[in-house]
Amino acid sequence: MSDPPVIQTRGLTRYFGAKPAVYELDLAVPRGSVFAFLGRNGSGKTTTIRMLLGLLEPTRGSGAVLGYDLCALPPEARARIGYLTEDHQLYGWMSVRQSCEFQSQFYPRWNGRVLNGIIDHFALKPEARVKDLSRGERAGLCLAQTLAPGPELLILDDPALGLDPVARRSLLESMLYLTRRSARTIFFSSHNLADVERVADYIAVLDRGVLCACCTLEMFRNSVRQVRLRFAGAPPPLPKVPGLLQAFRYEHELRLILVRLNGEVEQALRALGPLEMEPLPLPLEDAFLSYLGEHGERSFILDEADRDAGEVLKE
């Protein structure tokens, strides 16, 4: 894949007052990927998305979307981007049908089949008033209207927020349906790791405005590991272990969650003299939680560049 990334930022930074909401962000979203953008509330996801769309000016740094400078996105480029906001803005007094007709006026290319497909999928009645729709139904309507112009790049800001399980499943199905055209890229922020696990190829993790991982989902899973050390008595005090995210201390064992468990780290752990040392599998959610936890060191960035399980830790 020598294709240039659909989204690329360099040192993208935005301050609100003295506080950086997004700090030195280097993001690369490959064409055709389903890319999940993760982080806690207030970590800077929406600020980033707004900068990507040229809705908010960066304090410094630069970026390109579909090859265009994000501070000067021409209308042709905007027409190729579908953007779904967190708060599903629609006119309440319109019917579903009117709302769709209204939206379609703005787009030269409008795919009625895609629109109706999604409207059916969410079981929306064309005559229903928008203000009477449930949150899930509004989400479905917005999604249908975002997809109907056939965007090449889809940016979804927490599309699953507040959806019930049925609506969430419909959303995922629609997202996957869309990626059957392999040139399409979906960039979505989410808090739901089960959804991410199902659909994402890549993930980026933002923590208090700082990017701390940007890699394939698989690499993330492979890089965050849990090890159990068993001891005859109480476990000895833990020395400084590079890459340690979390340590749990029990009566006769230590459980450590680490980033990039390499030979050097393994040796350091063996030096503690455990009776037994074994890897324990870790669900994605636990890996993610320890990655964002307040415990341990916070200075690792995981990205595709350090595939070699190397020792290069970014300070």
Partner: peptide, 13 residues
């Protein structure tokens, strides 16, 4: 591949 991905609602990759 496509059918199973759709059935399980997961990424085809």
């Amino acid at each position: 591949i496509r059918a199973l991905a759709e059935q399980l609602v997961i990424n085809a990759n």
